[in-house]
Every structure is written in structure tokens, then in C-alpha cells.
Design a protein around this nucleic acid. Structure first.
Length: 124
DNA sequence: CAAGTGACTTTCG
DNA sequence: CCGAAAGCCACTT
């Protein structure tokens, strides 16, 4: 049995940034995750800010669901009223994720990766 | 090396 | 439920 590899992992040692991008790419449609949670799942606990930094620097070659990443309380991280915040809200609502008062209910939409994902896609 | 910055988080009042 | 304060960490100046 061969371990399944994504385009990002591609059988190589991953840099911290690559692990973050990879993890963000695993968030399913219709779900969201906090910066801190992505950091944890990527094996980088305590580095929520770094997740934000990495998402700001996504290679043009990559297409990621960056808009599925929110603050720990479910809020959109961008300044309210900014064009980026508006875009993020549109993208979320386009996949049935409810955004009220600039905020998503993590109880309802928060991503909880299954064991299969933890063991196969997140086994760094 | 010191100081500033930020798509963050937690704690306190 | 805000808002401020402090903690946090990688990166830039």
C-alpha cells in the first residue's frame, strides 16, 4: 500500500509554509477552520500568525481556499468593509457557509478532520 | 542586534 | 459581548 500524496507534498520534505498551504487545501467545501487550528494540524502549534503570513504569500501557481480560514472566534480577519472581507464573505456564502455580522458559527461550519485525513494527508 | 509589523489568540474587566 | 493588554512568532527595517 502506497501513501497517497497531494500535489504539494509530492513525496518531498515539506517546508513549514508548504505544510500550511497543504493543510488549508484540505478544508472541505462548506467548512472553515481557524488560523490556530490550521497551524496545529500542520504540526506548527502556536503559529497562527505565521498561517496568516503564509496565506498572504501564496505562490501564484497555487489555488487555495484561503477564504475558509477565519479567526478563532469565527470572524473574518480582514477589516470590516474592506474589499477583501467582502470577497471572502461572498466566496463563503457561495458554498452555503452562513456569515452573519462578519462572522461564521464554528460550531456549525468548523472543520473536524476525520481519522483518515489525519493519518494520511496530515501525517508529516 | 533592536524595533516595528501583522490575514492571530487568550485572558480580564 | 466588546475592547484593551499581553503573549506570541516569523519576518522586515
Amino acid at each position: 500500500m502506497v501513501k497517497q500524496e497531494s500535489a504539494i507534498t509530492n513525496g518531498h520534505k515539506l517546508t513549514p509554509a508548504e505544510r500550511i498551504w497543504h493543510t488549508v487545501g484540505l478544508i472541505p467545501t462548506g467548512n472553515v477552520a481557524s488560523y490556530g487550528k490550521i497551524a496545529d494540524l500542520a504540526g506548527l502549534p502556536g503559529r497562527a500568525r505565521y498561517v496568516g503570513y503564509c496565506l498572504r504569500n501564496v505562490p501564484a501557481s497555487l489555488t487555495l481556499p484561503w477564504y475558509r480560514v477565519l479567526r478563532s472566534n469565527g470572524q473574518i480577519a480582514f477589516k470590516t468593509g474592506s474589499p477583501q472581507a467582502a470577497t471572502q464573505r461572498e466566496l463563503l456564502e457561495a458554498e452555503q457557509v452562513l456569515v452573519q455580522n462578519n462572522r461564521v458559527n464554528l460550531r456549525l461550519f468548523g472543520w473536524e478532520p476525520g481519522l483518515d485525513v489525519l493519518l494520511h494527508q496530515l501525517a508529516f
